[in-house]
Design a protein around this nucleic acid. Structure first.
Length: 274
DNA sequence: CCCGGAACCTGAAGGC
DNA sequence: TGCCTTCAGGTTCCGG
């Protein structure tokens, strides 16, 4: 499912294909996919607009339009943007199509219809509440310590809270916590300074590696060209319940934290100990 | 403010 | 074989 590394990959690969192009028209097949404004206003606001920029904030993909407005997409769990070849079943799951002035199309594919598109004047209303970008230099161990000190919820729950840090979802939270050898149920504010530093390092390392592998093709993630990412082959615990821990060979466990499947190694990630 | 749980949605997987 | 139930999870909303 698209988290920071996946949306970053989509942005990087889409950028040269769409920036500078004009959207001649948009067709929407699933009305609920357009969250804001009304469907009619969305279509007229996007039509005949030149795309002047493409960026990412957290898990959001942001198109800057010549009108000064912003087209903001969120892929939720199963969304993807396909530029050229469509997967086997062309019509199925395509919720919207953007037609470009060079005759090519951009398809918004989303089997579960959780994905959302918005057209807004000010991106701040959509992304303004997000926490810091974990791959920016300003995301330091000190900042992470300050963010965690305010929260006593399980570290797993706090890491996937977008208002705390932007872009980390279920898979990369499990990978980062495992890499830092911290139990997912540890209260966030109970981490020692050394543990916070380990976690900071793990977050940066896990996300950076996943971007260089073009994202993880769990669920329905495709890169814009229709190919898959390979980051999931490097997963050490995420979605690997029952498999041996790469550190100690004991079977990886799956528990539920805040309603989310959480994979960890009970031997490498102890609950008590500082 | 902080925390946790339900709802949204629908294909996939498991049970009988 | 096939119907039925349950599960998955990012975000938002709601209650304590």
């Amino acid at each position: 499912m698209p988290e920071l590394p996946e949306v970053e990959t989509i942005k990087n690969e889409l950028f040269p294909l769409v920036v500078g192009r004009t959207i001649t028209d948009v067709a929407v097949f699933s009305e609920k996919t357009v969250r804001q404004p009304s469907l009619g206003e969305f279509q007229s606001g996007v039509r005949e607009q030149k795309i002047t920029g493409l960026s990412r904030r957290g898990k959001y993909l942001i198109f800057s339009l010549a009108s000064g407005k912003f087209l903001i997409l969120h892929f939720k769990m199963t969304g993807s943007l396909l530029f050229h070849p469509l997967p086997a079943d062309p019509e199925k799951f395509i919720r919207a199509v953007f037609h470009l002035d060079n005759g090519q199309n951009l398809y918004f594919r989303d089997p579960r219809k959780f994905g959302v598109m918005r057209l807004v004047d000010d991106p701040g209303f959509v992304v303004g509440h997000l926490g810091p970008e974990p791959l920016q230099p300003s995301f330091t161990p000190k900042l992470l310590a300050e963010l965690l000190a305010k929260r006593k919820a399980p570290i797993k729950a706090v890491l996937i809270d977008q208002d705390v840090i932007a872009g980390i979802g279920n898979m990369y939270a499990d990978e980062a916590i495992f890499t830092a050898r911290i139990h997912p149920l540890r209260p966030a504010n109970s981490l020692s300074q050394e543990e916070v530093e380990r976690l900071h390092h793990a977050i940066v390392e896990v996300l950076t590696a996943a971007i260089s592998n073009k994202g993880a093709s769990i669920e329905n993630y495709y890169r814009p060209g229709g190919t898959l990412g390979i980051a999931h082959f490097q997963f050490r615990v995420a979605h690997r319940g029952g498999e041996p821990c790469p550190n100690c060979e004991s079977p990886i466990m799956r528990i539920t934290v805040r309603g989310r499947g959480t994979y960890f190694c009970p031997c490498s990630q102890k609950l008590e100990q500082a």
